[in-house]
Structures are given as structure tokens and as C-alpha cells.
């Protein structure tokens, strides 16, 4: 069907450029593109191959198993999946309002001279190495949580059952709070860029109708930027899901399903950091690799779901695709 017919109105040029420079350039960038693909599939392949032992031993029991027993060589990943999801949820619940609030403040309320410097300071949070966050979490935040925050939470919210157990300061909650601080620069910086990119005509449309500053922000500016803010949040979530060092230092490292925000726990990332290099045998090693594979799938799932959700929202109501 590709045969050119005499009636075909557009004459085709040569399929490829004959310039040497173009050929070399195409080859180089093609190599780059292919290389990235090969890397992704190589990593996936190694993870699949090395988790084979564990998968054959436990099958789907691995995914729903709540026990991680090194002595009896029984491995289930639920303690770490729950630890990962709960700490990331805490990070978003605390970090999202702070990050988006700071972004909205800096783009719509703050005096102009303040916007650049304060924005830079917020972004500086991203430049702090995660081991420093862990250190700070262990020696500053943890003790403060143990002596002040956690007893108060227990007193006022203990009836919910989620704030019980000994307050240690190295637990799920402290790890979640550290993660919240770590996701703020990501969410804040990208939200700020999206908010700053809202066309001035949208702002003027609201102002000219007699909207107050707050109404203009709520009706014209934030809705226009919502898809960008959503994307920023997903990026932040991605960071929280995979963060290793700071969590490992603050979460308490216990291989059990958390029963309270004060439980010691473990995320998938901290499990790998703690146990991979000193695993007791090939089965445990393989199980840890399989847990890593599951973390990869969780991240992938979050991204795909976010894209689908975004696509639906934009298709139904219109809006910026940025």
C-alpha cells in the first residue's frame, strides 16, 4: 500500500539525509535513546531474575504475607509496603498544605522583593543531603517528638487507637514528618512555577469583576494551575516512596506491620538498606530483591494513576495541560 501512485501529489524526498554530520548526529542521539531503554530493561531483568527464588518459594503469599521471619526463612512484604505507604501518606498530609500554601503565598501575596529570596530558601531544603535529614531526625526531631509531640498526641487522640504505645521518637510518625520536610521543596518549587505561569489575563479577568485578592487566587489562579500542582505532588510522593537514608535512621527498623503511628517500622527502601548486604542466605536476599521490585511497581502505579486522573480531569473541564 505504500507504493507511490502517479496521483500522489507530494513527491517524497530521500528518506534520510545524505550529510555525514546528520548521520553521525542521528546515530549518537539514537544511541543515547536506546541506551536509556536498555538500562531500564536491564534493571527490570536483573530484579526479576534475582527475585525468582523468593517468588518460587512463596508465590503470591509474598505479596500478602505479614510476617518477615529471618529465623524460619518466611518472608512477606506487607510490613514494608504498609510502612512505605503510611510514611508517604504522613509526608503528603503534612507537606502538601505547607508546600502549596508557601507557593500560593509567594506568587500572589508576598511583596515582590520577598519572592526570589524566600523561594530560593525553600529550594535550598532540597539541597540538604538526606543523611543530614536523618541525622537531624535522629538527634533533634526524634527526642522532641518523644518528649513533647507524641505524649500530647496520645493524650488528645489516643482514643482513636492510632496514637498508642510507648513514645520513642524513632518510629513511623517521625519518619513521616522527616519525609514531609523533604517533599516540601519539590512540591513548592514546581507549584510555584505553575502558579507564576498563569496568564495575567486570567488574573485581570477576576479582578475586573470586583474580585478580592483571595477570590482572584481561588477562582482564577489556583484552578488554572491545578494540574501542575497535582503533578508536583506526584513528584513529591515519588520522592517520599523511595527515600532511604533519612527514613532508615528515624523509623526504628522493625520488621513488623505497624499498629500505631508510634510503632517502629520499616519501609521497603529502609529494608533494602538495612538487610541486603548482610542477608542470611540466598532466600532472604532474593526476598529483599523482590521487595525492591514491588517498590518499583508501586512507583509505576502511582505515576500511571496520576496520569490517568489528570487526563480525565482535563478532558472533562478543560484547563492548562502543563
Amino acid at each position: 500500500m505504500d507504493r507511490p501512485t502517479p496521483s500522489s501529489p507530494t513527491p517524497r524526498g530521500p528518506r534520510r539525509s545524505r550529510h555525514w554530520g546528520d548521520l553521525i548526529f542521528a546515530g549518537l542521539v539514537g544511541l543515547g535513546g536506546a541506551g536509556v531503554l536498555v538500562l531500564v530493561f536491564a534493571i527490570l531483568g536483573v530484579l526479576l531474575y534475582q527475585s525468582g527464588l523468593s517468588f518460587r518459594a512463596f508465590g503470591w503469599q509474598f505479596v500478602i504475607g505479614t510476617q518477615w521471619d529471618v529465623r524460619d526463612n518466611i518472608y512477606g512484604v506487607v510490613p514494608f509496603v504498609s510502612g512505605t505507604l503510611i510514611t508517604s501518606a504522613i509526608a503528603l498530609v503534612i507537606g502538601f498544605p505547607l508546600a502549596v500554601g508557601s507557593a500560593i503565598f509567594l506568587t500572589t501575596q508576598a511583596p515582590r522583593w520577598m519572592r526570589g529570596p524566600v523561594g530560593t530558601v525553600i529550594e535550598l531544603l532540597a539541597a540538604i543531603p538526606s543523611v543530614v535529614y536523618g541525622f537531624w531526625g535522629l538527634y533533634v526531631l526524634g527526642p522532641y517528638m518523644r518528649t513533647n509531640v507524641e505524649p500530647a498526641l496520645h493524650r488528645y487522640l489516643g482514643w482513636t487507637g492510632a496514637f498508642n504505645g510507648p513514645a520513642t521518637g524513632t518510629d513511623i510518625l517521625t519518619a513521616g514528618v522527616i519525609l514531609a520536610v523533604m517533599v516540601i521543596p519539590t512540591i513548592s518549587a514546581i507549584s510555584r512555577e505553575t502558579l507564576a505561569a498563569v496568564p495575567i489575563s486570567q488574573r485581570e479577568a477576576a479582578l475586573s469583576l470586583g474580585a478580592t485578592n483571595w477570590e482572584t487566587t481561588r477562582v482564577a489562579i489556583v484552578p488554572y494551575a491545578r494540574s501542575g500542582i497535582f503533578g508536583a505532588t506526584i513528584l513529591g510522593l515519588g520522592r517520599a516512596l523511595g527515600e532511604t537514608m533519612a527514613v532508615t535512621m528515624t523509623i526504628g527498623n522493625r520488621d513488623a506491620v505497624p499498629t500505631s503511628f508510634f510503632s517502629q517500622g520499616q519501609t521497603i527502601a529502609s529494608l533494602i538498606a538495612n538487610e541486603l548486604t548482610n542477608s542470611n542466605g540466598p532466600l532472604q536476599y532474593s526476598a529483599i530483591i523482590e521487595a525492591g521490585l514491588i517498590l518499583l511497581f508501586i512507583s509505576l502505579l502511582v505515576n500511571v494513576l496520576a496520569r490517568l486522573l489528570l487526563w480525565r480531569v482535563l478532558r472533562v473541564t478543560g484547563g492548562s495541560t502543563e
Binding site: S201, A205, A220, G319
Partner: peptide, 8 residues
Amino acid sequence: KPNPFVTM
């Protein structure tokens, strides 16, 4: 330029 609220 027409500037309706695009999300509405």
C-alpha cells in the same frame, strides 16, 4: 483578547 476562565 477574550479571557474566559479556562477551567469553567
